[in-house]
Design a binder for these strands. Structure first.
Lengths: 207, 207
DNA sequence: AACCACATTGACCAGACTGGTCAATAGAAT
DNA sequence: ATTCTATTGACCAGTCTGGTCAATGTGGTT
């Protein structure tokens, strides 16, 4: 539970929260407009500042909010027992695409927030994001099983190629999600497509 | 020669042009500030509007300017006789990284310009960018020689993996260029590194 | 009905910033 | 000294900023 808010209180904040995530993700802290947020959320200006007493407080709330979602619906669900790089990535990529479908702006927001240069929030952000991001990333990459690679393969570069492929696929999938609506049929075809890419990579690097 | 300007006239505009490319690339048309441009360029407000009579005219000048640079220093230098996908991509990637070192904001600017939603310039932009981008992209991808791929390889997906790897490498290189200065020593090491990636991919897909 | 507690509104504020203007100045060439 | 252009920066009206607050709406309790 974030900041000890009840479910009711969170539910009432939701239109504002979603609109704010979108606006901050698009424009960053300084360039984001509270007027645009309330317009998008369909509420009055006063209400935003009734719930969140300042733009800065709203932004910092969103950092906690998104980190909590990422932790709960992404990081915690990754099976760290799985040491095979493809199985691990497949799992992570599918979880991430799932999350983007449900919370379209969460990853974009936290990415923008973590890199913000705005003096007003920079310090407060870094202490919060560094913990999770550094920890979860290092945990994600460490202790990967590379024993199944073909002998003679340049493992370091092979892993980077795998990562870039996953990132590329993710970007393509995200772009498609922005236009189409999510349906089960799409999902099956999409999954088969994704697995086909993994098969190509496996055929490359595994013996 | 752009708009029939002499070399002297172009040279005097240069600080403004570079500052404007940077500002538009970062913020897009609407959010970019002419005040920020003149501050970065180190010239007075009046001078900008003496050379370019409006923000819109400045922006459209930059579109022509960058398209001409891209054409002259990138598109025209690509050897379309080369049908091998790796040789072609190696050539293009190296040209592009060269260009980013010399004109850091040109590709970012034209990317932002081509996708701008701003009503004021959208129409004028699209007629200019579509010609070059569509043509050069299609020419780049067509007639690629795939005969050297190992039999049984999923060629379509293999090509996408190659593209995503090139894009990933390019992003990494661009990020490094932003911090370090360009020196020949770096360049040799970088080229060897890049070729090592190509070798890994060739080992994957070629027989 | 009367009262209360709280949710919600939107007109309003001072101040910052916007693209753009223009009379005044600086500097070079004659 | 004169004339030319290159360059400046104070200034403009207008828009947008984050934030305030008295007023109004709403639903529940007596």
């Amino acid at each position: 539970m974030i900041s000890g808010l009840s479910d009711l209180e969170l539910a009432k904040r939701e239109p504002i929260v979603n609109a704010a995530l979108k606006e901050f993700a698009r424009k960053g802290y300084d360039e984001a407009s509270t007027n645009e947020i309330v317009r998008e959320a369909g509420v009055s200006k006063g209400l935003l500042f009734h719930y969140f007493h300042s733009k800065k407080e709203l932004f910092l709330f969103l950092v906690d909010y998104t980190l909590e979602i990422i932790q709960r619906e992404f990081v915690d669900l990754i099976n760290t027992e799985e040491r095979d790089i493809f199985a691990r990535y497949r799992q992570a990529a599918l979880l991430k695409i799932d999350m983007i479908a449900r919370h379209p702006y969460v990853f974009d927001f936290i990415g923008v927030a973590a890199l913000t240069e705005s003096a007003q929030v920079k310090e407060a952000i870094q202490s919060r994001t560094h913990t999770l991001l550094a920890l979860s990333l290092s945990r994600f990459f460490d202790q990967m099983d590379t024993s199944r690679f073909r002998p003679g393969i340049d493992v370091k570069r092979a892993m980077r190629i795998i990562i870039w492929t996953m990132e590329g696929y993710e970007r393509a999938a995200q772009q498609e999600l922005q236009t189409k609506t999510v349906s089960q049929l799409d999902y099956d075809a999409f999954l088969a497509d994704f697995d086909a890419y993994i098969d190509v990579l496996k055929g490359c690097f595994y013996q």
